[in-house]
Design a protein around this nucleic acid. Structure first.
Lengths: 163, 163
DNA sequence: CCCTATTAGTTACAGATGAAACCAATGTCC
DNA sequence: GGACATTGGTTTCATCTGTAACTAATAGGG
């Protein structure tokens, strides 16, 4: 009764603009690019570096391994970010006395100062985004992101097997 | 009355795990990686290529410019994706008779077949994600993503100026 | 103890990505 | 109708990112 070639119920056709993974990806990219651009211009800081600063700013001292866990970045990315941050005098690392493999990292005074300057900007950007939502939506979003993250981790792709 | 160094109201401290851009980025990356891995293994297809196929599968014939608009990818990415797709015999392009700059692209029979095989998988993956949400949340998510995308486009970063 | 397995982190290489330069065709304005 | 700007698309180059190989140090099991 509806459209001619309605082999599927309405909406089961794949329309990219409505496809959740696509929407998430473009939204996230847009936001990341805005942030990355601003950090780069103003602080000569990449996003991985900023993440390292953010977690160190809160935790005080962490090993690279701890940072990997806290930021979801892999060790290579962290190694590189830390190398740049050390060169810039923003982070300082010393080997753990108890385990010579571990490198204990912390912010230098300069790094801490940078953290203190960036954090409010980041939060204000976040607020600007959230301002577009109704209070109920803000609350819903929190739950939704948690559920989607859990689901994404659980399934990892239903098409992962079988040719 | 609460914590010692409560210079800010609770929650105004930057905690990466609660920071919206970070949460979106990790969620989107996780999903993208799952999808990209599956497409690569099963179809030897990258995500940009898949997007091109998806829009061509629906629209029939499009120029590269049209695809850029529909997929939010830039022309370079499209040029590369199309080049690979043509080599694989999945897409075919001919120059527009009315404007010799334009390249009109469409799926080949093989490309259409591929599209028919992938689209249901993509949709089932999406359903698997959405299954984690309550019906009200699914509806809310749609509105939220629209609002956030619009906001992200509008603001582009409040910290974009001033040193 | 010593030999092997595991863990922390770095290095090396390769493929992906993005910005800018580039080429070709069309539109525009005098 | 010819210069100049604009648009569609590709190529180039430099950087980023991810995977795998590597080094160094500790843990564990006989």
């Amino acid at each position: 009764m509806s459209s001619a070639r309605a082999k599927y119920p309405t909406g089961s056709d794949l329309v990219l603009e409505r496809f959740l993974p696509y929407r998430l990806s473009t939204l996230s990219n847009r936001i990341s690019r805005a942030i990355a651009g601003a950090y780069e211009r103003r602080f000569n800081l990449t996003v991985p570096e900023w993440r390292v600063i953010a977690v160190l700013g809160r935790a005080g001292t962490l090993s690279a391994r701890d940072i990997a866990e806290a930021t979801q970045m892999d060790k290579v990315a962290i190694s590189r970010a830390v190398a740049r941050l050390e060169r810039a005098g923003r982070v300082r690392g010393e080997t753990d006395a108890a385990d010579a493999r571990r490198l204990l990292l912390r912010l230098t005074a300069r790094g801490a100062e940078l953290h203190a300057r960036i954090a409010p900007l980041a939060l204000s950007y976040e607020q600007a985004l959230l301002a577009a939502l109704a209070p109920t939506e803000r609350r819903a979003l929190d739950a939704i992101l948690n559920k989607l993250s859990a689901a994404a981790q659980r399934i990892e792709a239903p098409m992962a097997d079988a040719p």
